[in-house]
Amino acid sequence: MDRKTGNKLVYGIKVICVWILAAVFLAPLLLVVLNSFKTKGEIMTSAIALPGSFYLDNFITIVSKSNFVSSFLCSLFIVAVTTSLTVLVSAMAGYSLAKWKSRIAGILMVVIMSTLFVPFQVYMVAMIVVVRDLGLTGSLLGLILVYIALGMPVPIFLCRSYAVGMSKEIEEAAIIDGCSKWTMFLRIILPLMKPILATVAVLNALWVWGEFLVAFLVYGNGKPMTLPLSQRYFYGTYSNQWNLILANFLISSIPVVLFYVVMQKYIVKGITAG
């Protein structure tokens, strides 16, 4: 009896703690929602008051001025292609790094992880020159290749740890069955890695969706623009039009949030399984 009430108390405290934290985390986002329905004047008077009326002009301005629809579709296309290729490339590399008993693999792992320590700003100009030398400036292909290259390290890392934990017996059984190594990889290993690949895909897609700097430098004024590129219109040097900026954040975040909610179970599953 005693223990039960104790448990209930603990549970109660837990619930309260977690909801307070959740409220703190959500507050800034709620402010974004709130203020994106206000006029510029209303925000200046008070940032925390409720909007006077259901003011939708901010959204209309954004959709009409920033080619929202075509940018949206362009971003969708880039995310789809980049993410599927990143997943494939990292699965291959991660598996190889996990199973290849060679010194090269060890060294490569260290080098790939070192990307985490080098800020992008450091090598971005030199990278643009490479992109140009390959004749890829302003092309979607160039952008996608760079996205794969820059987005790869953590996925490779995750795939590798996952593959290390996979039992050897399955592979051996497959080889004895007469499978070629390639068939084994495609038909047995890849499906086995599904949970981690789903995780990697979700994290990668979220990153690509919101990425601005690389797109700006590599893809530049290519058309159609990606969503973050088209949003740049609102962040001009001197335009602190909070009503528009916040409304812009709101509509561009909705698809990602929905995507995350749908895919959420994979994220935890993938990392757990690894």
Binding site: M124, V125, A126, I128, V129, V131, R132, D133, T137, F216, L217, G220
Partner: peptide, 8 residues
């Protein structure tokens, strides 16, 4: 942008 584009 100009830095990158002049370099390339």
């Amino acid at each position: 942008t100009l830095r990158a584009r002049s370099a390339s």
